[in-house]
Computed example of a mutant assay.
Amino acid sequence: MNTLKAEKRSMDVKAKKLRREGYVTGNVFGREMKESVPVKIEKATVDRLLKTCHKGSQVMLDIEGEKMNVLVKDVEFNPLKGQVDEIDFQALVSNEKVHSVAEIVLVGHEKAAGGVLEQLLEEVQFKAYPSALVDKVEVDVSNMKVGDSIKVKDLILSSDKDVDVMTDPETTVVTLQYVHNNVPDDDEDEAAAETAE
């Protein structure tokens, strides 16, 4: 499990100022906490973490020496600046189910022949105890034939007795569609490109 170092943040200092100084602001909340704890984390540390973790990942948060098992609950990305502004965490309690999301990752697509794979669902929502949390669900599409589809109820996660899947079980995750062969061949493409110039 990844460990993320954080510092308690004084609310006297505005978030904008902290971001200019190279920090990402955030909050830690949880059922057994009297109140949420505002934190600040070095931007470079958050960027490193988000290369391997994302929303729904479990991490060890080290707040000035106090370690907490937390879930990455929300990541607020600023597209204009190309950086994370805010990251929120939920402190986990071993006997309490938490809401989370798992990213759907397709595997074996190079073997799915004769059609075009269309992924219709990027993540699945669920509730689980901390011990059963996952941040990725792999979907093997290597045996799919044209016209086949995989639904949420077909995922390994749906058969896990420790997990309550919240996404509709009938939701389609991925389908293998027919290829429509009305694509012009290269010669026609080049001729069209030349006339367009």
Results as ranks from 00 to 15, higher is better:
residue 137 V to K: 08
residue 137 V to D: 02
residue 137 V to R: 10
residue 137 V to N: 06
residue 137 V to T: 06
residue 138 E to I: 01
residue 138 E to W: 00
residue 138 E to M: 03
residue 139 V to G: 14
residue 140 D to E: 09
residue 140 D to K: 15
residue 140 D to F: 12
residue 140 D to L: 14
residue 140 D to H: 11
residue 140 D to M: 14
residue 141 V to H: 08
residue 141 V to L: 03
residue 141 V to C: 02
residue 141 V to E: 01
residue 142 S to K: 12
residue 142 S to H: 11
residue 142 S to D: 05
residue 143 N to F: 07
residue 143 N to T: 12
residue 143 N to V: 04
residue 143 N to S: 10
residue 143 N to G: 09
residue 144 M to N: 07
residue 144 M to A: 07
residue 145 K to Q: 13
residue 145 K to R: 12
residue 145 K to I: 01
residue 146 V to A: 01
residue 146 V to T: 07
residue 146 V to R: 01
residue 146 V to H: 00
residue 147 G to F: 03
residue 147 G to L: 02
residue 147 G to W: 01
residue 147 G to Q: 06
residue 148 D to I: 12
residue 148 D to A: 11
residue 148 D to L: 14
residue 148 D to S: 15
residue 148 D to F: 15
residue 149 S to G: 06
residue 150 I to V: 14
residue 150 I to R: 10
residue 150 I to A: 04
residue 151 K to E: 15
residue 151 K to V: 09
residue 151 K to M: 13
residue 151 K to T: 13
residue 151 K to A: 15
residue 152 V to H: 09
residue 152 V to K: 03
residue 152 V to Y: 08
residue 152 V to D: 10
residue 153 K to C: 06
residue 154 D to I: 10
residue 154 D to H: 12
residue 154 D to E: 08
residue 154 D to G: 04
residue 154 D to P: 03
residue 155 L to K: 11
residue 155 L to M: 09
residue 155 L to S: 09
residue 156 I to G: 10
residue 156 I to T: 14
residue 156 I to W: 11
residue 157 L to S: 09
residue 157 L to Q: 12
residue 157 L to E: 04
residue 158 S to L: 03
residue 158 S to V: 11
residue 159 S to H: 15
residue 159 S to R: 15
residue 159 S to Y: 14
residue 159 S to D: 13
residue 160 D to V: 11
residue 160 D to K: 13
residue 161 K to T: 07
residue 161 K to C: 07
residue 161 K to E: 11
residue 161 K to W: 09
residue 162 D to L: 07
residue 162 D to V: 00
residue 162 D to T: 03
residue 163 V to C: 02
residue 163 V to P: 01
residue 164 D to S: 04
residue 164 D to P: 05
residue 164 D to K: 09
residue 164 D to Y: 03
residue 165 V to K: 05
residue 165 V to Q: 04
residue 165 V to R: 01
residue 165 V to E: 06
residue 166 M to Y: 03
residue 166 M to H: 02
residue 166 M to R: 01
residue 166 M to W: 06
residue 167 T to M: 08
residue 167 T to V: 00
residue 167 T to I: 05
residue 167 T to D: 05
residue 168 D to V: 02
residue 169 P to G: 05
residue 169 P to E: 02
residue 169 P to L: 08
residue 169 P to N: 01
residue 169 P to R: 01
residue 170 E to D: 14
residue 170 E to Q: 08
residue 171 T to L: 08
residue 171 T to E: 10
residue 171 T to A: 12
residue 172 T to C: 07
residue 173 V to R: 06
residue 173 V to M: 04
residue 173 V to W: 04
residue 173 V to P: 01
residue 173 V to E: 03
residue 173 V to A: 04
residue 174 V to Q: 00
residue 174 V to L: 00
residue 174 V to D: 00
residue 174 V to F: 03
residue 174 V to I: 00
residue 175 T to L: 12
residue 175 T to E: 06
residue 176 L to V: 02
residue 177 Q to W: 00
residue 177 Q to S: 02
residue 177 Q to N: 07
residue 178 Y to F: 00
residue 178 Y to V: 01
residue 178 Y to L: 06
residue 178 Y to K: 07
residue 178 Y to D: 13
residue 179 V to K: 02
residue 179 V to G: 00
residue 179 V to M: 02
